[in-house]
Amino acid sequence: MTDQTEFTAALLDPSMALPAGLLDPKGLPTPKRFAVYRNNVAVSLTDALEAAFPVIYKLVGPDFFRAMAGIYLRQHPPKTPMMMFYGQDMPAFLQQFEPAQKIGYLPDIAQLELAIRQSYHAADSSAIAPDVLQNMPPDQLMTARLSLAPSMQMVTSPWPIHAIWQVNMSSGAPKPQMQAEEVLITRPEYDPQVALLPPGAATFITALRTKSFGEAFSDAAELTPDFDLTITLGALLAGGAITNIIET
């Protein structure tokens, strides 16, 4: 075992003995001095998780969140120094985390908060003008392929995650009703926008990544007979999420 292996293990596990060979100026062992490092690690990672998951924080409260973060950060220390992406394992962690089992929608809210962060830091792109799509002859549109912005994200859930997210982010939002929800995240400029999609839209948008416009529409209409294409395209265009139309 190397010195830094021992140091790392003791940093993350406060019940472990201090690494050997660490001294204060009088040559005495020095638990409180080592605790400065333990505390820096735990506090800075807890703060990073608080910044990443503001709605989870609100839903469970400060005490629960900090206790949960203390367990998470030891099971899942960051894998890179880019702290803005820390917390990728939170949805899976919450699925398993016994004290959170009563709140079934927490993992999907965590997924939504991660998607918002991904969108915020995603590459810039320019959107097509809405009339390009509107002016296209229908038969050409049906065989065309759409390119989507790197900042566009989607999260689907059996829970009303959009309503839960909204009620925790802005006052006066309507009370969540029990229903499955599909959420679209777009970034028209620099601020991610979170919008509720109509049923079937997630199938359509997912299919757009690999199929023609017409095929994607068929996929969505098959699963959701009243799939609303107009609202779905309106949401994509409003968010600047369509970056190119490739005619085939």
């Binding site: 690690v41 800075s44 990073a48």
Partner: peptide, 16 residues
């Protein structure tokens, strides 16, 4: 140092 064995510890740790 701040990284050990793929763990990034988000602190500036001491070197002898």
């Amino acid at each position: 140092w701040s990284t050990h064995d793929t763990h990034f510890l988000n602190d500036l740790l001491p070197v002898p």
